[in-house]
């Protein structure tokens, strides 16, 4: 990038090598456990994973409630969408007087943001359970709870995981903003080590590690989906692929794919 006006490839290579050298030298400092790149990466993982988990823990019961009592869903969804319109940096600052410099200042807003993807996906996932499957479960003597845990949730897993994938990428990239408020994570590398010292290596390392973390998390979720829904891959390649494609479509989220108007995503009456 910097090499565009410099003397071509050699300069670019030097630049990259310099960054790798810096990363290797600063990866961790044995004597001081709180300095270096590794502790920031671990902080980043902690902040983002806890937020996503809390978001999921809220979205599941809330989604269930929205499916059971469907008139509740549109206002709840509108509320979540309005919340999502609140910029993360503003929300972090608004949290400061209440939570101070604890992890919660980042976790509470980030967990609320994940709802905008997770809630519609949980609801859509549960709604697409075929009626005959539900009736079969009832006929087999399944009570409401057992039906939910053993039948409905497993059928909804692909759509829920699709939502988790979108939410996790968004959350992992947003945690960096928390460092502007003075919280940790890879953003701290970008802001205090990089920008305030006018030094590009930490910024590049921060960006690259954030992207890698997002990709690694995404891969883990894809694998988790395969393990949780073995039936989707057993034989009948075409049908399975079709189903996967549909889940993928729902994945691109709230944003993309559902052109049939089945995603009520228009908070026209806030």
């Amino acid at each position: 990038m910097i090499a565009a006006d410099a003397s071509g490839g050699v300069a670019a290579l030097d630049w990259v090598m310099g960054i790798i050298d810096w990363a290797a030298a600063n990866w961790s400092h044995p004597g001081e456990p709180d300095r270096g790149i590794l502790p920031r990466l671990l902080e980043h993982m902690r902040l983002s994973y806890v937020s996503i988990l809390i978001g999921l823990v809220i979205a599941l019961p809330l989604g269930l409630a929205c499916v059971r009592w469907s008139p509740v869903y549109p206002p709840v969804l509108t509320g979540v969408n309005v919340l999502y319109a609140v910029p993360s940096i503003a929300l972090f600052f608004l949290m400061l007087p209440y939570t101070g410099f604890s992890d919660w200042t980042a976790i509470i807003p980030l967990a609320l943001y994940t709802l905008v993807v997770l809630l519609p996906n949980v609801v859509d996932g549960l709604r697409q359970v075929p009626e005959h499957v539900r009736q079969a479960a009832v006929a087999m003597g399944f009570g409401p709870l057992r039906r939910l845990v053993a039948v409905e949730l497993p059928v909804a897993v692909p759509v829920i995981i699709a939502g988790l994938r979108v939410a996790s990428v968004a959350t992992i990239s947003m945690v960096s903003v928390a460092s502007l408020v003075g919280l940790g994570g890879l953003g701290q590398l970008i802001v205090s080590e990089g920008f305030r010292r006018q030094f590009d290596a930490p910024i590049v390392v921060g960006i690259v590690l954030t992207v890698l973390l997002a990709l690694a998390t995404d891969t883990v979720l894809v694998i988790a989906q395969r393990l949780l829904t073995p039936w989707a891959h057993a034989g009948k390649g075409r049908l399975a692929r079709k189903r996967a494609a549909r889940a993928e479509a729902a994945a691109a989220g709230r944003d993309a794919a559902v052109g049939s108007g089945s995603t009520p995503d228009h908070p026209e009456s806030p």
């Binding site: 990428v169 968004a170 990239s173 960096s176 970008i190 920008f195 910024i203 590049v204 921060g206 960006i207």
Partner: peptide
Amino acid sequence: FARALPTIGVLFLIVLL
């Protein structure tokens, strides 16, 4: 892939360059 890019990182890097 680009969605995973941390915006402040991109912004600060371009400012530096």
